[in-house]
């Protein structure tokens, strides 16, 4: 039982927005960015067992045992009050899974699944688990037909991708901004590694989708969109570009000061990209 384990924030056995078809999605806890616009900020931090969430739990599902948070999923009624009080954007309800657990889940839902997506948080921070999971899926007779995708911010170095890409079928990569200063402001990190990752993944033929979040007045400027066009043209091919619209659902107070992105604004940006010769632009089907 030396199977690698992962800290998992959430698992979905039905998802139609995390890659092609219906997918099993494993959201891993913890992120190396700290995006102002993050719509599930409780996946960013990692629990330090401070215990602040224990009194907030009305269902007595949380306790401190020997200095560590213990979570009882049987009494939890998913009110998420613990997330609201966590001072470090962590999640006391995380569960530990090993590769075998996920394989079992995939087997149970096999006929309904097109593939498996590992998302987050930032999934590449638990690289060993992801590689082991994808290897195991590909080695399993019943599961080998499932394609293995990653939803990443691209902040992983080349050697990390070297170990991951051979067992990965597709990557959905977010570029938060093409202006390094804006990127640092938005995420706390430089954009260089993300841009490098996009090129490297594309060269490996595995860049399924490049995602760009439109925030009014922040990332929807002509300069940003031109940056996106130039990058895509430089990349070559007809990689699918997914424009996402910034929404207020789930974000932290600071981001609530920003305007929501309207459908009209997204359509305008999409039209600009298409006119500039980017053929494959996808826009959201639903606006909250």
């Amino acid at each position: 039982m030396n199977s690698p384990r992962a800290t998992v924030s959430k698992i979905l056995t039905y998802s139609i927005v995390d890659g092609p078809g219906n997918r099993l999605v494993i959201f891993l806890q913890g992120c190396n960015f700290n995006c102002t616009a993050c719509h599930n900020p409780h996946t960013i931090g990692e629990c330090n067992h401070c215990g602040d969430c224990v009194p907030a739990c009305h269902a007595d599902a949380l306790s401190l045992v020997d200095g560590r948070i213990v979570f009882n999923p049987l009494t939890c009624d998913q009110c998420d009050d613990c997330l609201a009080v966590c001072p470090i954007n962590a999640n006391p309800m995380v569960r530990d899974y090993d590769v075998a657990d996920i394989l079992e889940l995939a087997r149970r839902h096999r006929p309904f699944l097109t593939g498996v997506t590992v998302s987050g948080g930032e999934p590449t921070r638990q690289l060993g688990f992801v590689v082991a999971l994808f290897e195991a899926i590909k080695a399993d007779e019943e599961l080998a037909g499932l394609d293995c995708f990653i939803d990443s911010n691209g902040h992983l170095g080349a050697s990390g991708w070297d170990s991951l890409l051979p067992v990965t079928d597709g990557v959905m990569l977010d570029i938060k901004s093409f202006d390094d200063a804006v990127h640092r402001e938005l995420t706390g990190k430089e954009n260089l590694k993300s841009l490098r990752s996009a090129r490297l993944i594309h060269e490996a033929g595995k860049l399924y989708e490049l995602r760009f979040l439109l925030v009014p007045g922040v990332t929807d400027s002509d300069d940003e969109l031109d940056g996106l066009v130039d990058f895509m043209k430089d990349l070559g091919g007809d990689v699918r570009v997914k424009l996402n619209a910034f929404q207020h659902h789930g974000v932290r107070p600071k981001a609530l000061e920003w305007e929501k992105m309207s459908k009209a604004g997204v359509d305008k940006a999409a039209a600009r990209l298409r006119e500039a010769g980017i053929p494959n632009v996808v826009t959201p089907a639903v606006y909250l």
Partner: peptide, 23 residues
């Protein structure tokens, strides 16, 4: 009932159909 996100991903409907029939 499937939400309209599926209009960007009709392949999901095909997979759900296959899963339903296999079940």
């Amino acid at each position: 009932t499937v939400d309209e996100s599926v209009t960007n991903n009709p392949e999901a409907l095909v997979q759900l159909c296959k899963g339903a029939f296999a079940s």
